[in-house]
Design a protein around this nucleic acid. Sequence first.
DNA 1: TAGTGGTCTAGACCACTGC
DNA 2: CAGTGGTCTAGACCACTAA
Lengths: 252, 252
Amino acid sequence: MTLDPPTGYREIAATLRAAIERGDYPPGALLPSEPQLAQRYGVTRPVVNRAVLMLRNEGLVRVERGVGTRVRELPVLTRQTRRRQQQITGTGAARGAFQAEMETLGLTARSDNVIAEVPCPADAAGLLGVEPGELVLARQRRMYANDIPVQLATSYIPLDLARGTVLEQADTGPGGMYARLADMGHAPARFTERVRVRPPTDTERVFLRLDADQPALTIRRVAADATGRVVEVNDIALAAHQWELADEWDAN
Amino acid sequence: MTLDPPTGYREIAATLRAAIERGDYPPGALLPSEPQLAQRYGVTRPVVNRAVLMLRNEGLVRVERGVGTRVRELPVLTRQTRRRQQQITGTGAARGAFQAEMETLGLTARSDNVIAEVPCPADAAGLLGVEPGELVLARQRRMYANDIPVQLATSYIPLDLARGTVLEQADTGPGGMYARLADMGHAPARFTERVRVRPPTDTERVFLRLDADQPALTIRRVAADATGRVVEVNDIALAAHQWELADEWDAN
DNA sequence: TAGTGGTCTAGACCACTGC
DNA sequence: CAGTGGTCTAGACCACTAA
């Protein structure tokens, strides 16, 4: 236990972190300005800025330019693995899973879609069996909780499966995309998911309101039909500080 | 495309990142010193330091004090979910799973154990049904790849189950800890895993050689027996940049 | 001892915001 | 306009490492 004033940007960061967790600065509140903090702790502003940077990287606070530094507002969100989502809600009900989870937390869920034919990302081309840069259908879903962006999911589907089908429409009907793929004889039979933590892409950083130093939590799901052909690659991006991934299963 | 010299710490960071990915600085190599980089880019050293900080937070480089800044040596490691590990290797073969994965990558796996009775961490006490601070058995396993620390896993087991049993020994015999719990009539029947990204604790930071700003990827697995009693809480900590989590399953 | 990064001072100018 | 954070200069002193 130290009663001395905090020295060094780490101690200043720890002091601010404790104050936030204690509730001195509730969610949505502004921290004192950096000049004020600098005077309070007897250091120069770059030192305070460095301390605040730690809290930003943790996702504890977020800067609004020209306004100030604000305490994070949303609680931590939980995402059940897709495998669990299917067990609980039946195939293809990702939309419902997001809605349900947000409602559990007392949050308002909202999402919108952007659908376009785009050049296939290089790291997905091999999986989808197309040339890098070849056009594929991209279905991007942007999800919000209390109107705060929290998740960005982009599905890539080969054009020979998607073109001229309802997969090019915003509403894919009952059972969603996977039910339509099943109708076409390409029911997903095997899924893989890979979770990574990495710096956000520019798209992810802007949409998820991340700093350049804040990590994105990413999930790549690959769906293959019974023949082993990959029919969908789904790239999901989350703010790492904002989410928890959950799984649950029985022994054997 | 810009041919101008990089300006600002972000561009300098991007330049260095590109040089590393291009192989100009191979794994294990030292970057030029910060004074050298400052002169090269026509900025002061704090600016270079800030650029290098970005690369450190990404896990791309690591500082050795008094020596220099070194490019990360290990490739990205993969961890199958425990559920998958069980499917593949049978119950309780986590040790084998780590060994096998490292061998696949051509790395040498090693691990050691620390076993002790410790006060139960506050956030595990409720799950284990003990008072906060009450003693529980802690089995900590530290894992290395090519002698580089890569994973720290700590199991907490209630003392009334563990005391006087082989669970207090380093070697728990064939089938491992879960087989012994089964012998005692407390076979794990239901597992939950929760994945979080957060700043490392001091213990994690030191063991995993993380900077204070680098995130840890953590997994908390809870094992309950058939009666629903929690018989183990396992906290796993990984360097977030170093690992990929993988899962795989069949539809329905 | 010389070289490394860790950290700080005491300024400064800038873009952006809300009034 | 004043206030916010973003970023930089031009130094400085420190602890640590390797020789």
